[in-house]
Design a protein around this nucleic acid. Sequence first.
DNA 1: CTGAAAGCGCTAACAC
DNA 2: GTGTTAGCGCTTTCAG
Lengths: 387, 387
Amino acid sequence: MVRRPSRPGGPDDASGAHDDAGPGGPAGPAGPTGPGTPSAPAPSVPSTPSGPSSTPPTLADVAELAGVSRQTVSNALNNPDLLRADTLERVRAAVTQLGYSPNRAARSLRTRSSRLVGMRFAPVPEGTANATMDRFVHSLVEECREVGHHVLLFPGDPEDPVAGYDELLRSTAVDAFVATDTWLGNPQAAWLEAQGAPFVAFGRPWDNPAARHPWVDVDGAAGTRLATDHLLDRGHERIAWIGWRKDNFIGEDRRSGWADALHDRGLSTSGLASRVEDLVPSGREASAVLLDEAAPTAFVCASDTLAMGVLHTLADRGLAAGRDVAVVGFDDSQVAQVVPGGLSSVRQPLEQVAVEVVRALAERLVAPRPTATGVLLTPTLTVRGSS
Amino acid sequence: MVRRPSRPGGPDDASGAHDDAGPGGPAGPAGPTGPGTPSAPAPSVPSTPSGPSSTPPTLADVAELAGVSRQTVSNALNNPDLLRADTLERVRAAVTQLGYSPNRAARSLRTRSSRLVGMRFAPVPEGTANATMDRFVHSLVEECREVGHHVLLFPGDPEDPVAGYDELLRSTAVDAFVATDTWLGNPQAAWLEAQGAPFVAFGRPWDNPAARHPWVDVDGAAGTRLATDHLLDRGHERIAWIGWRKDNFIGEDRRSGWADALHDRGLSTSGLASRVEDLVPSGREASAVLLDEAAPTAFVCASDTLAMGVLHTLADRGLAAGRDVAVVGFDDSQVAQVVPGGLSSVRQPLEQVAVEVVRALAERLVAPRPTATGVLLTPTLTVRGSS
DNA sequence: CTGAAAGCGCTAACAC
DNA sequence: GTGTTAGCGCTTTCAG
């Protein structure tokens, strides 16, 4: 309990509790000198920072308490090397004592950096197993903290994919964006690039090989190849594919992994592929048709949602997934993890994606011009009962 | 293409493309009058704010273009009623022309409002079906936009539940918090209340009836009662419960709905309840034991995760969910939606929760003192094949 | 109804 | 090493 000379009669800092505001370890040199230290400027109290929401302490408060100038406090925080050890110590003590934390708005205004990263957060369609972006955001939030940033979410306007970005950019609300959802090409990326806005894409610039922005992606083809090889190794030779529309870049990429794996073993893919919407009923119907017409013994799917559709068909027909027909999905969603029997699935290393995204972001924020680096990560296969 | 008096020799606004910067519907008055319209202020166009990332236009730029003072522009934005119609029109034209959007940092600094809402975003445990918070965040983001706010995510420190809140609060980074995850009481809420920090809780102050903060919650007991009544109506009389530890307030609440529904029909609950961890294997084991020892014909579960455990057991024993044994889960997760056969589940109205949370937030932000209002919403039951 | 002055809290330049 | 000066872009008095 640090007890500074308190104004007599005043409410004092009766609240007691919250001295431990600052993380900075043990109290240190700011320790109680006891009341009655008649030093000159009568370093009075940090006016109970707790209690009602009084305004938080400012740089000036810290400076006064530490007996230095405001600038010195600023330096203590941003350029500690510039201070003499004892001064630094004294300032830090004052900081923790007051529970001081620099005002973000003021700092932003001055440095032109909000330490915020914007990301469009589009709702997950109901009735699917897709939650990749949700999982990714969790990792992104964690990683951003490492570099002192926070994640700002904004809603997507289905009409205008660029709307949310534009306003945040013009109001300098965020330092950078993480652009996602690049299935059908990436208008946001092109737009952001044209604006000169710092951003990193989760997803390759499929539709624009000349793009100059940094991106991070997962090698979907490698994932489906992993899945297909796994099935081939288990003796399957007629392995079907259920994927998405042809104009979906990600879908075509994943499809190629399946096709290449089969071709590499001299197996044909003809009649074994299907393209549908990413919905459970679509996967269900597609698998029923394939089963009837091509008699595959295994399925590789572009998503867990489609794979669940296959499981529906198998259940309909009294077939056991994994024993009668093998199924592998993509995304290692919660659904794959908890469905009875378990659904084997290709798992994207989203934590790693977040790490790379933040790394690229950090680089981009110091670089004057974007450095067009792409990082391609390899997924893994989680094998469960369905294969 | 709008062409302002450009500095000769300068790169000028060559980029062309992006006139559509502003959302504001059809071009309106700023429309191209074509080159060579020598009107006074030369109402030029949205001056390619694009190009390289030059600094965005400021209030002063708008003022100059509109031929008024800076505060007039400010008023046009914040108190349009104060302006004469024609002046307002002129300013607005300048705003859209320049693609002006007020600098957030500056505005925050001045108004002491960041228009940001903070929320701790804790990772979803792997292997469960729980994604309630993810779904909620989507709705929250949407709702916040309605009132001109954005959502700021911060990671949770498992050690110190208050850590993230504290720093954001002291740095005035957010206007308010949405406090979630109140299963075991709500230390954050108590702490935030003590700090006088504006916040709304998603979840009742279970452990502190004297709490004075606004909250929104879903009536879990009503949900499980709905589920139980549904099963009773279908003729089930031996309905088992699989829930959580006794110290979990939410779990006990949900349990009471089940128990009350049975008691109301004069049925006993003894031997029919089980308390376990919220994991699939736990639900699986618990249901196996219950099936052996109490021979229930139906299960109501505190979560979809546990319900999936029941489905595992049924699959193990060759029993058909819905035909041989009925199962109802809680949360209407993706898993419930796509699992073969479908899992009936109690659905929380998260969109509505978000609406109420934001409403309460808005109220709290204008109220000097917190008004202790609680809103309790009623869930619905989604019936699928499992019951 | 519009303009002029002040200042939110901070940090980048320079003095000392 | 430390203090002084200035100003980021905005809104809130208060005069006209």
